[in-house]
Measured scan of single mutants.
Amino acid sequence: MIFPGATVRVTNVDDTYYRFEGLVQRVSDGKAAVLFENGNWDKLVTFRLSELEAVK
């Protein structure tokens, strides 16, 4: 189960963010908004829950 605050990895091989890890900001309607941070940039991207896996 994916909840806000969880760290997730993108599993969709066709996505630009494949294998990126980010922090879930919100979850609704089968989608999750994931925040990616890297140095001087932040990006908030929405994914279907089926495209994400929780990082242990």
Results as ranks from 00 to 15, higher is better:
Tyr17Ser: 03
Ala32Cys: 07
Tyr17Gln: 03
Gly22Pro: 00
Ala54Trp: 12
Gly30Gln: 06
Pro4Val: 14
Lys31Tyr: 15
Leu49Pro: 03
Leu44Phe: 06
Val10Arg: 00
Leu44Ser: 06
Val24Asn: 00
Lys31Thr: 12
Val34Ser: 03
Ala54Leu: 15
Leu44Arg: 04
Asn12His: 05
Asn38Asp: 11
Val55Ile: 12
Thr46Glu: 14
Ile2Asn: 01
Leu35Val: 06
Ser28Asp: 11
Lys56Met: 13
Asp14Lys: 12
Val55Thr: 07
Trp41Ile: 13
Val24Arg: 00
Gly39Gln: 09
Tyr18Asn: 03
Gly22Met: 02
Arg48Asp: 14
Asp29Trp: 07
Arg48Asn: 14
Glu53Gln: 09
Phe20Ile: 07
Thr11His: 04
Val13Lys: 13
Ala6Arg: 06
Asp29His: 09
Gly30Asn: 07
Glu37Lys: 15
Glu51Ala: 07
Val8Pro: 00
Phe47Arg: 03
Pro4Gly: 04
Asn12Glu: 05
Val10Asp: 01
Gly30Ala: 05
Phe20Lys: 12
Val24Lys: 00
Tyr18Pro: 00
Gly30His: 06
Glu53His: 06
Phe3Thr: 10
Lys31Leu: 13
Ala54Thr: 10
Leu52Cys: 02
Gly22Arg: 00
Glu21Val: 14
Val8Ala: 03
Phe3Trp: 09
Leu52Arg: 00
Val45Pro: 05
Asn38Gly: 11
Phe20Gln: 13
Thr11Leu: 07
Arg48Ala: 12
Lys56Tyr: 13
Thr7Lys: 13
Met1Glu: 13
Phe3Ile: 12
Gly22His: 00
Val27Pro: 00
Glu21Cys: 08
Val34Leu: 03
Asn40Ala: 11
Asn40Gly: 13
Leu35Pro: 00
Tyr17His: 09
Val10Thr: 02
Pro4Arg: 07
Asn38Ile: 15
Thr11Val: 12
Arg19Met: 15
Gly5Gln: 03
Tyr17Phe: 09
Asn38Ser: 11
Leu52Val: 05
Glu37Met: 14
Leu49Gln: 04
Leu52Phe: 02
Gly22Glu: 01
Asp42Thr: 15
Asn40Lys: 12
Tyr17Lys: 03
Ala54Asn: 10
Trp41Thr: 11
Gly30Phe: 06
Lys56Ser: 13
Phe3Leu: 11
Phe36Ala: 00
Ile2Cys: 05
Asn38Val: 13
Gly5Met: 04
Phe20Trp: 15
Lys31Ile: 12
Arg19Glu: 10
Arg9Glu: 03
Val27Ile: 11
Ile2His: 02
Phe20Val: 07
Val8Leu: 01
Asp15His: 15
Val8Cys: 04
Leu52Asn: 00
Met1Pro: 12
Leu49Trp: 05
Ser28Val: 10
Arg9Pro: 02
Ala33Cys: 11
Glu51Asn: 05
Val10His: 01
Asp42His: 15
Thr11Trp: 05
Leu23Arg: 11
Asp15Gln: 08
Ala6Asn: 07
Leu52Pro: 00
Ser50Lys: 05
Glu51Arg: 02
Gly5Leu: 03
Asp29Lys: 08
Val27Asn: 02
Glu51Lys: 02
Glu51Gly: 03
Ile2Leu: 06
Ala32Gly: 03
Val10Gln: 00
Val27Phe: 04
Val55Phe: 06
Ser28Gln: 12
Asp14Gln: 11
Thr46Tyr: 12
Asn12Ala: 09
Thr46Phe: 12
Asp14Pro: 03
Val55Tyr: 05
Asp29Ser: 07
Val8Tyr: 02
Arg48Trp: 14
Asp42Gln: 15
Ala6Asp: 14
Asp15Cys: 11
Val13Glu: 11
Gly39Asp: 10
Thr7Leu: 13
Gly39Val: 09
Val13His: 08
Val10Asn: 01
Leu52Gly: 00
Gln25Asp: 05
Phe47Lys: 02
Arg26Cys: 13
Glu37Thr: 15
Leu35Ile: 07
Arg48Thr: 10
Leu44Met: 08
Ala33His: 11
Ser50Ile: 08
Leu52Thr: 00
Ser50Cys: 08
Val27Gly: 00
Lys56Ile: 14
Val34Lys: 00
Val27Leu: 07
Ser50Ala: 09
Met1His: 12
Phe47Ala: 00
Val27Met: 07
Ala6Glu: 08
Gly30Cys: 07
Ser50Arg: 05
Val24Phe: 01
Glu53Ile: 09
Val8His: 02
Val13Phe: 07
Thr7Gly: 03
Val24Ala: 03
Lys31Asp: 06
Ser50Gln: 09
Ala6Gly: 07
Trp41Glu: 13
Ala54Ser: 08
Ala32Arg: 01
Val10Ala: 02
Asn12Ile: 05
Asn12Lys: 13
Phe36Thr: 00
Glu53Thr: 09
Leu49Phe: 08
Asn12Tyr: 05
Phe20Asn: 06
Pro4Gln: 07
Leu44Gln: 06
Asp14Tyr: 12
Tyr17Thr: 02
Ala6Cys: 12
Arg9Phe: 06
Leu35Glu: 04
Glu37Ser: 15
